[in-house]
Amino acid sequence: MNDQDLERLLKSAGLRERPPAEVEHAVRARLHAEWTAMLQSNRERRYRRGGFALAAGLLAAAVGLWIAGSGTSAPPAAVGTLAVASGEVREKAGWLSGWRAMDGGDVVLAGRTLETGPDGRAALALPGGVSVRVDRGTRVALVEPGVLTLVRGALYVDSGAGQARLARLRIETPAGSVRHVGTQYELRLLDSGVRLRVREGRVEFRSPDGAMEQGAGGEQLMILGDGRVQREATTRHGPSWDWVADAAPAIDLEGMTLSRFLAWAGRELGREVAYAPELAETDLAAVVLHGSTQGLTPGEALQAVLATTSFSAAIAGEEIRIARRDPS
């Protein structure tokens, strides 16, 4: 077979079909997440086997019990709980199984896929105080505890305050993976690429080839289909963030101080809480709240709660300004 024959044959047969880029990206992200989970699971199995060998030499009876415990097939690990389910929210265990409607309070398990319908929104409560909000028309694979794959739509992550900020969560997307370093951020799959908006803290984005980008509070990173990253400033509040507050789980008010409630509201609304000069935060810490804000958005809850106190709130620019209510 000479070169001319080969060229003639290949040209007459035509190019092999290329899979669509979005399919390739999606499968790569899912597969990479599965591979990572598989490696982790293998490591844990090896660790358990190592533990077994050690224990066998020490205490046969204890080993017998251990074998009895570990010999049964383990159920899927819990990823977290569904804190909010509004409109259509459903899950399925694999592509061979059907969809199952979900309700608030359901446990979400590793290996499942969660989906919100055109009218659905959800919030997941993950270990360590991490809250993940799921926008309308979103599909997310719950790969394993601490690892999610965004298949379509948008997620918002609030890693919480204090120690909870250290809780780990990785989100895989077709363009790469995202980890937070104590933050609030939104991740949205668009036709043109992956949009990452950081409200607070820092986020690390890693592309499949290992390149890393960081986004800081007030920054938006647009990761285009060809891997280029466009960076620009973004707002931390406003209409494009409203869906996050709509999907926020209600806060348990009972026994909470007013200052803590305001800190929560400020975080949910993407604004700093500023106190009028005559007020000290300790004034508000002395006010203990009772009741419920069930069914209210954070903005509505803020107004409802303050109406029962001698304080008022006004939104001005980046701030929620708290002042003593005019007695008149």
Partner: peptide, 24 residues
């Protein structure tokens, strides 16, 4: 023609790509 392309797919990895890059 589909079978010719299937033969390319069944070659060891990179062979099919290299042939397409060169001749197509």
């Amino acid at each position: 023609a589909r079978l010719v392309r299937a033969v390319l797919d069944r070659l060891p990895a990179n062979y099919g790509d290299a042939l397409e890059w060169k001749y197509l």
